[in-house]
Structure formats: C-alpha cells, structure tokens
Write a protein that binds this DNA or RNA. Sequence first.
DNA 1: TTGTATGCGTTATCAC
DNA 2: GTGATAACGCATACAA
Lengths: 352, 352
Amino acid sequence: MEGTPLGDGPTINTIAERAGVSIASVSRVLNGLPTRRETERKVLAAAEELGYVRNAVARSLKSRRTHQVAFAMADIGNPAYLAMLREIQPVLKAAGYRLVLHSTDAVVADEIDVLHSLGERYVDGLIMSPLRVTDAHLESLAAARTPVVVIGSVPEGTRADNVRADSRTGVRLAVDHLHALGRRRIAMVNGPLDTVPGAARGAAYREALEELGLPYDDDLVQIGDFYRAEGARAVAELLARVPDVDALMCANDLIALGALDVLRASGRRVPDDVAVVGMDDTDLAAASWPSLTSVSLGSAERGKAAAELLLQRLRGDDSAPRLVTVPPRLVVRASTAGNRADGPYDRKEGGV
Amino acid sequence: MEGTPLGDGPTINTIAERAGVSIASVSRVLNGLPTRRETERKVLAAAEELGYVRNAVARSLKSRRTHQVAFAMADIGNPAYLAMLREIQPVLKAAGYRLVLHSTDAVVADEIDVLHSLGERYVDGLIMSPLRVTDAHLESLAAARTPVVVIGSVPEGTRADNVRADSRTGVRLAVDHLHALGRRRIAMVNGPLDTVPGAARGAAYREALEELGLPYDDDLVQIGDFYRAEGARAVAELLARVPDVDALMCANDLIALGALDVLRASGRRVPDDVAVVGMDDTDLAAASWPSLTSVSLGSAERGKAAAELLLQRLRGDDSAPRLVTVPPRLVVRASTAGNRADGPYDRKEGGV
DNA sequence: TTGTATGCGTTATCAC
DNA sequence: GTGATAACGCATACAA
C-alpha cells in the first residue's frame, strides 16, 4: 500500500463507474442484499482496489442513526466519574456505539448546552451525571428528542431513565461501622451544602447519629470542599476545635486523603486514635496508606447500568421511565480496622 | 415549555413554511448572511417557536467537517492515559470540537480498526497512543486521509505528528537520584519486554547503571507486568533472591505501589531500607503512603501538546510532520526522601 | 437482478 | 435581497 495521495476519497459513485454498474448495485452489494455473483465480484474488487470506506455521515443522514452516544460528566478530573466512564465505554463499544465525551465542569449552562445540542442529532442518546438538577435541566430534558439516562436523582415524572446512588444509606453504613468500633465522637467533613451530594450526605449524617442515639453536635461538622487540600484544611480546623474527635466521616475520598495527611502530621495514629472513612471508593482509597475504608456508591455499577438502560432505549424500548437504585457498600480497609487485610488487589486497575 | 411530543424535529423546511420564505432565506438568516430586517425577524421567530436546532449530520455532510476528534487510548483503566484525556478534552472543547473516545485495550487489530475507520469521516482528526507500533499501524497511518497525531514513537518519515516521552532520560534521572542517595544495589522491576515502554525502560536502566559505573546484574532485574498485583509478586520474588537490595526502580507507578505493599509486609522501611521510584507520576503516586517518588513522563503535557498539534492541522497547516519530545521530570516524594515535603497538594485533583 | 430517481437536511450557486 | 435548484454520499421504492 503506497502512500495514498490525499484528496477526496472514493464514493459509491467512484466504485460504480469502475465496476461498470449502478450506484444502487454498489449499495446493495455493500449491504449484503441479494445480487448476481458477477456483480458482487466486480463491486467488491473495485471497492478493494480503491480502498473504499463508507461515509458514516452520509449514512447517518439517511438512516437517522449516528451510532454515537454521549456521556456528559460534571468533572473529568474526578475519579468517580472516570470509574463510570470505564464501565460505560466497553458496554457501548460492544453494542457498536462510539462514545462522545463531554466535561461540563459542573457548570449548569454547559449541561443545558449538552442537552440542547441533542437536537443537533449527532448522537443517538445521552448519559449525563449532573452535580445538581435545576428547572432548566428538567425543561431541556422534557424537550429532548433523544433518549437520556440521568445518573443522579431526578424528580418523579421526568421523562428520563434514572440511575441513583443511595448516599443516605451509604453514610448510615459508615457511621454504623464507626459506632460499632466504639467511636462516639464521630465528625463529618463535608463539601458545600448547595451541591446535591453535599446536602444529601450532610442530612444523612445527622439522621444516622439520631438513629444511633448519638447527640448531634455542630462542632463536629466541618464544611470544606470536595478536594484533598480543602479536606486537609477543614480537618485541621476541626482538630483545633475538637481535639478529642475519634472518627471522621468524610464526604468523599479526596477529603479523606486530606484528612489522613493532617492526622499524620498532627501525630495521631489512624485508626488507633482516629478512624477515617471516605466515600466513592475510588482507586485512591485502595492506594493510600493506611488504605482507606470507603463507602462505595457503586460508580462503576451506576455507569454500567446507565449504559445498559440507554442501549435498551436505543433498541426501541419506549416503556415508562425506569429507576435503578444502586445499593452502597462499605469497603472496610485499614483506616478503620488496622489489622484487617488491606485488600489492595480486589479492584481491577489499569497497567503500564 | 410543555412536554414536546416526540417525533421528527423541525427542519429549515418547516421554518420556511411557517415564516413564508424560502429555505435559502432561512439558511441565510441562520448563518448570519445579509438579509432584510423583516425576513430575519420572521425566520428567527419561527425558529424560536419551533425550537429549531441545526442538524449536525446534514451540516457535516455538506461542509465535510464534523467538528469531532477521536482519541484512541490503549487502556481506559490506565491513569496515565486518563491524565492525557484530562488535558486533551478542554483544549478540543475550547476550539469547538467534540471528543470521541476509543479504548483499544492495546489490541493491535482494534487500533488498526480505529485508523481504518477514519475513512468513515466521522471525525476530523485523531490522537492515538498505541502501546506498540507495528507495520500494520504504519500502513494504515500512511493511508489515512485525516490528520493523525501519535503519542508514542513512530519511525522517521511517518506522515503523522508525533509526541514522545523520553523514558530513557526519565529512567536515568531516577537511577541517578538513587545513586546520589548512596544506593548501590538498585533493582529494576519492569513490565513485559515486548512492549515499547518495557523495552525502552529496561534498556535505559542498563545504560544508566553503565554510566554510573555500576555493574549490571541480571539478578537485580525482575520482569512482571504493569499492574499493582503483578508488581507486588515480582518484588516478592526479587526480595527472595536478593534480600539486600536497597532501591527499586519500578517501570510504572502501579508496580511501585505493589512494591510498597510487599516491602511493608516484609518489615522493610521505605525509604530507609529500600528506596522506591515509580514512573508516570500518576495521581496514585501522590496519594500513596509513603508518597511515591516518580518520574513524570509528562502524560498531561503530551496530551496537551498532541491536542494542540492536531488543532493546527485542523486549521489547515499542512507543513512537514512535527516531532515534539516532552522532557521527563523527577518528582521527589517520601519514598526516596523520607523527611522531605510530601507535596500532595502540588497537583490538581478532581473533586466530589 | 438491476438501474433510475428521490430524499435525508444543509449549504451554496445561480438567476431573478 | 430572495427563491429555485443543485450538490454532499448513501439507501431505497419503484420500474424495468
């Protein structure tokens, strides 16, 4: 195969000419429709010689299907979304769909843009995971002419499939676990309360304490942001205010890693002095030392479920919107149970 | 905005009818071409009422541009590729391109498929990062009618822009560092030698020792695979064979994490007894404890450079193929220098 | 079985 | 300035 000179590629017209048949015959052969042996031979030979490849755009215009699906994540830097992505990709690929990625940086306008752009029909469906769901989201969702699966919570009645985590139960699992270990001064290190996860996890913490009969203490709640450095700063403040805290319920793994840094720097042992729990069970939880007990909210499962739901819609299923809730799971590691197995090998991790 | 009944969306024909003008006028207005005030008003009103959105497929067929770019990574589970992705995405987005993701699982046939599928013209360009470059790659690359940027090494004369890491210098930096710390029994824990990185890093290790005047000792080289569990297994074997090793040069971060696990389990202190260096400087390196000294091969920079190179091509630049080499950088953390700053906050990490 | 002709939704080139 | 009309590349209903 010598270096093909750039320029316009061959079309079915080129082939038709070369093979001495009509474009209809070319199309038929290429689509496996019944044709005479000789015609088929000529067409395939011409196609081969010319290095013909079907133009996906023209084909989409005709068929009204692009074989593309979009995934809109709030933040491409967030390992939790990447975990979803890792599951979504192979499912779609196996079904013959390409994946178009959008990172909206949790900007509402960007998310609305993505929904609006569905009208451009460059994808057959969308999976989206918004950080918060506004009225604008719901309007655009209602107007969408393309199947959409939302990872996160949407109000009942929304015309979109919905895959949810259950962070309420998740926090409960964690707090119960800490309580069972004998911890009684369990603090909460949360992210901003105006985000969906922040609000949900904060409320769940309060509920969990209540059910355990533990008093709720404002001093034990520290708001920061969902990043490692912010988490560290928040925990430093917390320790200054409440030195005798014996457990930290962190609203995500990054915060928890920041917590480990600060606890270590302050000379506290984990978990002996302070037990730490994160959320999302990202790769980082298994990598840290001590390895981090974390509440898995099923990022991977949610991604997979969303992809499968969407595929069903793409196959023509137009039944009522579905709701899938993925149960949380507490993954106990060293940060709450020092002498238990670390379990760093229980997750698939990429190589090279 | 009431729930729009599903069905075919409006086209410029619908608008033309509604506005009482021709489709040509509609197109003009929509494209900002000079039109009478009144026409413009009618068209825009109709478009607004109908909730019109341009059909991207039809537009692409006509314009021969899809405003999509593909990124083909060897393994979506690998943090190093995700680091590239995180840089590529915003660059393309800012330039108005969508990102189509392919994970080829390092299967050569899949990679060739991706190259071949460029002929379908569903993307305007491609960034790919193959684990190895075969003749089949080069042939498909030569036949490509679309700009391609390869992250990795391609032979001179290949008609594709090329962004390279310099793992040779990278290994050298690491080995020099270990040597400077007084280590003399420096082992290499590598991945398979039939991969490009495996081969390059293995050779570089040998070279580095030579330049330092250290003897090369087969016993100090252990081949495993580029995963954490494999790395752990390899290091266990190594320790059994060479108990007095005082430094480990690991071919990537995952291997290094596995090494930390095993060293810890064997009662060795890091870095006091054994210093450990990883490669790729992934997020995991900063998260682990002790935090991991790692050679950054500039995954992020390479991704960014690749995206920018591709954008230049998409803007029409058809000059000779470019070669960009990103210099490696040693990021010293606790696994080789116990009392230095951990620096866990020097990298941007995702939140929530 | 095969060819002719039409449409998918846009953009662009003409005359008017 | 505006309206017919012809592509873009493919699939297909219909006629032959």
